[in-house]
C-alpha cells in the first residue's frame, strides 16, 4: 500500500461571489521512504497542495489517503492527531516557539506525540550541529540554525512523512545547501518519505521524483 494517495483532488478559494480554483483534479501517489519534489511558479498551488496533504486545510473534492486513512473522513481533532503522529512539517519561516529553548523546540512534537526518545533527540541535535545551542532561544540563532531546529523538530517523532515547504527560501545559498544536505541525510536515515515544495529545479533533481505543478494541475 502506498503511503500517500491523492485522487482527483480539487480546491478553490471563494472570495465574495468569485470562485478561484487553486487545485484541479490532482492525482499523486507516494510510497514509503520515497522522496518527491514539487515545483511550480508562484500561485501555482504547490503550497496549497502541501497544506492539504498535511491536513492543515480542507479540500472541495477528491480524496487524500495517508497510510490508507482518508483525510476527508477526519474532523479537525482527527486531522490534528494524524499530523502529530504521522507528519513532520518544515516551513519557510521556521515557525519555532520563541519562548522555548532550542532543545525544547526540537523535542516539542515528539513530546506531544508521546514519543520522545532521548537518544534519538541527542543524535538529532548532534547531527544538526545544535548541541552547542541547546539552551539558547531561537532569536539567538541564525536563520540556517533555526531551520535546522525546525527540521529536527519535524523528524524527532520519526514520522513516516516529512512535508517541507520551501525550507530554504529564507536562507542564503551556501547555508541552504548545507541544510538541505542534512535534511536529505536524515530523511534517508529515518526512512521517512519526503514531500518537498521548492522552486529550485536543481534541488528537485536530487530527489527520487520530481513533479511540476502548473495552474493547479500536475504537469
Amino acid at each position: 500500500m502506498p503511503l500517500l494517495e491523492i485522487e482527483h483532488l480539487a480546491k478553490a478559494y471563494v472570495t465574495g461571489e468569485e470562485r478561484q480554483p487553486v487545485l484541479e483534479d490532482v492525482d499523486l501517489v507516494l510510497d514509503a521512504g520515497e522522496t518527491l519534489a514539487l515545483t511550480g511558479e508562484s500561485g501555482s498551488g504547490k503550497s496549497t497542495l502541501l497544506h492539504l496533504v498535511g491536513a492543515l486545510d480542507g479540500f472541495d473534492a477528491g480524496e487524500i489517503r495517508l497510510a490508507g486513512t482518508p483525510l476527508s473522513g477526519l474532523d479537525e481533532a482527527g486531522r490534528a492527531r494524524l499530523r502529530l503522529a504521522s507528519i513532520g512539517l518544515v516551513f519557510q519561516q521556521f515557525n519555532l516557539v520563541p519562548s522555548l529553548t532550542v532543545a525544547q523546540n526540537l523535542a516539542l512534537q515528539a513530546r506531544m506525540a508521546g514519543r520522545a526518545d532521548p537518544d534519538w533527540l541527542a543524535e538529532l541535535g548532534q547531527r544538526l550541529g545544535l548541541s552547542r545551542f541547546a539552551d539558547r532561544y531561537p532569536q539567538q540563532l541564525s536563520g540556517g540554525q533555526q531551520q535546522r531546529v525546525a527540521i529536527g523538530r519535524a523528524l524527532a517523532a520519526r514520522p513516516p512523512l516529512l512535508l517541507a515547504d520551501e525550507p530554504t527560501g529564507n536562507l542564503d545559498e551556501t547555508t541552504s545547501d548545507r541544510v538541505l544536505e542534512l535534511m536529505l541525510e536524515l530523511v534517508d536515515d529515518t526512512g521517512a518519505a519526503l514531500f518537498l515544495v521548492t522552486h529550485s529545479r536543481q534541488l528537485a533533481g536530487r530527489l527520487d521524483r520530481h513533479l511540476h505543478l502548473s495552474r493547479g494541475r500536475i504537469a
Binding site: 479537525e76 502529530l84 516551513f91 519562548s99
Partner: peptide, 16 residues
C-alpha cells in the same frame, strides 16, 4: 499567535 499556530500545525487540536 505564532506559537498557537505552530502548536496547531504540529498536531494540537483547536479545542484542546
Amino acid at each position: 499567535r505564532g506559537m498557537f499556530r505552530t502548536l496547531r500545525a504540529i498536531g494540537l487540536p483547536a479545542r484542546r
